[in-house]
Amino acid sequence: MNPESAADGPPETFFAAIGGEPTFRKLVDEFYAGVADDPLLRPMYPEADLGPAAERLTLFLMQYWGGPNTYSAQRGHPRLRMRHAPFRVGPAERDAWLTHMHRAVRSLDLPPEQEQPLWDYLERAAYFMVNTMDPMPG
């Protein structure tokens, strides 16, 4: 890339900087590979196939980080808490989600200056989704 023309153009998005769609697809595929066998999280996905949920998460993350706005075009405003309200999301579910997502983020092998903001956002989002502090019924 010509440095002079780069200075005239828009700044590179985080989406582009970490590799665009293939990187986000790998992240989400790795994440759902863990969710598929997780006894706490898997029941939260009523569809037999995790593919539709994976596609929604992929499109959301790509849009959030500066990629195409396909998520909003297809589904409207993200309204994350509202969309997750039907599900019990307590500390145990949050921690299980974070365990699988952390493994997925690490699988990307990003440099620290890219991995950290991605992880910080995902961690904040996981805490934001908690809608109950009640322990799981025994």
Rank of each mutant, 00 (worst) to 15 (best):
M1T: 14
M1E: 11
N2C: 14
A7I: 15
G9K: 13
P11D: 11
E12P: 11
T13G: 07
F14D: 04
F15N: 06
F15Q: 05
A16L: 08
A17F: 05
A17N: 08
I18G: 04
I18N: 07
E21S: 11
E21Q: 09
T23A: 11
T23P: 12
F24H: 03
K26Q: 14
V28F: 00
E30I: 09
E30W: 04
E30V: 10
Y32C: 03
A33D: 11
A33S: 12
V35C: 13
A36V: 10
A36H: 09
A36M: 15
D37K: 14
P39K: 07
P39A: 06
P39I: 01
L40H: 08
P43G: 05
P46C: 08
E47F: 10
D49R: 06
P52C: 06
A54M: 08
E55H: 13
E55F: 13
E55I: 14
R56Q: 09
R56S: 05
L57R: 07
L59H: 04
L61A: 03
M62Y: 00
W65Y: 07
G66I: 06
G67M: 01
N69D: 12
Y71P: 01
S72T: 04
S72W: 10
S72P: 08
A73R: 13
Q74E: 15
Q74M: 15
R75V: 04
G76F: 08
G76T: 03
H77D: 10
R79A: 06
R79D: 05
L80K: 08
R81A: 03
R83E: 01
R83N: 02
A85Q: 07
P86E: 01
R88C: 10
R88Y: 04
V89T: 03
G90S: 08
R94M: 05
R94L: 06
D95P: 04
W97L: 01
A104H: 00
V105G: 00
V105D: 00
S107T: 03
S107G: 09
D109K: 10
D109Q: 13
L110H: 02
L110T: 02
L110M: 02
L110K: 00
P111S: 10
P111W: 05
E113F: 00
Q116P: 08
W119P: 03
W119Q: 02
D120Q: 09
Y121F: 10
L122A: 06
E123I: 15
A126G: 03
Y127E: 15
F128W: 09
F128I: 07
F128M: 14
M133N: 13
D134F: 15
M136N: 15
P137M: 07
G138H: 15
